[in-house]
Design a protein around this nucleic acid. Structure first.
Lengths: 218, 218
DNA sequence: GTGTTAGTACTGCATACTGCAGTAGCATTG
DNA sequence: CAATGCTACTGCAGTATGCAGTACTAACAC
């Protein structure tokens, strides 16, 4: 039976549309950019091109290097047209998986320090990724893009990543400041500060822009 | 053999720590908040409490209502302490799955309209969620929170959701404006505007704040 | 009074995906 | 020449998802 094409299949097909790769190279490539939009396991990235070959969307040629054999996958004409059709379909909504936010939701089951540690972890990871993406993109100004004709796509994509990481850093700092003023994780409910935030929310104003009022802390 | 505890197990345990629920109610509850931090399938939310019972972290009592039986799950003392220990561990990094961004990365395989449609879809979904969360939270000001003592957690969590949805709306609008100026999806590479964006990135300035320069648009 | 629709409350199954352990060649360094 | 680390994968057990199916209940229409 013919296997079904998943979004991950099209993700791999998209990479093959750039140039032929072996499964190993596909994995490295996925680490560089794909993982920020469609994070998939190494294991899957080895399995997916085989499925594409089976379906005729890619071709695999064995290239022996020494005693080892590596298979290099190339997109076929059918692969190109499958990818084109997929591009015209409507995408699934974005999904965010964040364990740190789960810790916030259930914070009453842990200590203030547990919660602060989770927020700090999330902020630190976002900060590190922000630096990484900034460095890579700064390099493009010096002609370091491996596919110069694709720079516009990488850069526009990077603008989203950077805004997201920046938001995570700023929000975790904001949340830390709030939580530091809590006497405990449980049974706070609605104090003056929470009401303040709710008013900002109702007025569709950002809580990150509004300075914390001295009188309402503690 | 005893099944392993996953993050999803702790997510369900966290819900049970709030109050006892049936698997059906667990699913409804997960729709309201959990899905924004830890999106899991309905199917799993039916299976997970059974696993918790097997492990002694929850107890399930059968409550017949008419001819139908529904099982209501309650957290046990061991469940509480398992949850507490988990709260002290470091969380996994956040992960974003966004098909629309995948379309951007591989946009050269589709038309400008395909790309705009994907961006619009992402923006529209984020805008709808922004409204939803704003409405629900505004209700808390009128005492509509089902667990008043947990309002502080819901609200702080909501501030992140709103910032994220707002970012998605603003970024998709920004990206749309950029893409509208492209002659095609492919082979743009590095024009003046892309260089401008790269300079902003290198200087760690937000592209969303910087107005688009008339002279550089095509 | 009975057919229809919508909501409640699940289960089974095929398929998708992940993590981890294992294998094995090749290159560098001590 | 042994050890370490990188390249380049595969097998397998377990986790998670989507979808179809089952079955009961309540409301309202006809």
């Amino acid at each position: 039976m013919a296997p079904r094409l998943t979004t991950s299949s099209y993700a791999v097909l998209g990479l093959l549309a750039v140039q032929p790769w072996s499964a190993y190279e596909l994995n490295q490539q996925a680490q560089r950019s794909l993982r920020f939009a469609w994070p998939k396991s190494e294991r899957l990235l080895y399995a997916e091109p085989k499925k594409l070959v089976e379906l005729g969307l890619a071709a695999g040629q064995l290239e022996p290097s020494g005693k080892r054999n590596r298979t290099v996958y190339t997109i076929t004409a059918e692969g190109h047209s499958a990818l084109q059709s997929w591009m015209a379909t409507i995408p699934e909504p974005p999904m965010l998986e964040a364990e740190a936010l789960l810790r916030l939701l259930f914070a009453e089951n842990g200590t203030i320090d547990d919660l602060l540690a989770a927020l700090d972890q999330m902020g630190a990871e976002a900060a590190a990724l922000y630096e990484q993406v900034t460095t890579i993109n700064s390099g493009y100004l010096d002609g370091e893009h491996p596919f110069p004709e694709r720079t516009h796509l990488s850069v526009l994509f990077a603008t989203f990543q950077l805004e997201l990481f920046d938001l995570m850093v700023r929000w975790t700092e904001f949340a830390r400041a709030e939580v530091e003023n809590w006497p405990s994780t449980a049974d706070i409910g609605m104090n003056d500060r929470i009401v303040e935030m709710l008013v900002l929310i109702r007025e569709k104003r950002s809580v990150l822009d509004a300075p914390m009022d001295e009188g309402s802390t503690k």
